[in-house]
Design a protein around this nucleic acid. Sequence first.
DNA 1: GTTACGATCAACT
DNA 2: GTTGATCGTAACT
Length: 196
Amino acid sequence: MTTPLDRPALDAAPLLLGAVFRSGGVAVRLTEVEAYLGEGRDSGSHAHRGMTPRNASMWGPPGTLYVYLSYGIHRCLNLVCGPEGSPSGVLLRGGEVVDGLDIARLRRPTARRDADLARGPGNLGTALGIELADNGSSIATPPFSLEFPIVPERRILSSPRVGVSGVAGTDAYPWRFYVDDPTVSAYRAAVSRRRP
DNA sequence: GTTACGATCAACT
DNA sequence: GTTGATCGTAACT
């Protein structure tokens, strides 16, 4: 069985829009994703400097979950893409909760609207109940599953990736893909935190 | 051992 | 629109 995840991340990312990612009792229809390319080809990728204990699962087979802690707080979720052995993946940045709304609301008590439940990568991880222990798991193994839409999304938009630093001429790399939907996070350019 | 900083969020003005 | 929270990670001494 081959899936879009067997393809390189840049090809797979737009195909993931509209797909339904399930983790236990909560399911999300993906509306916003970003592609991260393999070692050396993408200085914005966690894999850029080679394998470390944190990012090792990016070298796993397509369909592997790469979960990492962002800003010491948020659990962000990537799906590893092909070809096997290349550390590329797609960051899941936003989606619409289509099942398990009650559970997602409990996990995200500060969300003002249902559209905010899985809006932004950290929020999406929280709504789905993703844990660091899920790092390295397979999308094909319960409690996870991924279902692609019968009819692919038609109107796909793209932009540079959100908050990615370290890539010269970021505007030249529109590797964020999304659809027109209230569950898509706000665009923010990368900002350097360095003192002048 | 130490330190700078990040694929962010929510609260606040 | 701006800013503080918060801590694991990796680079560096």
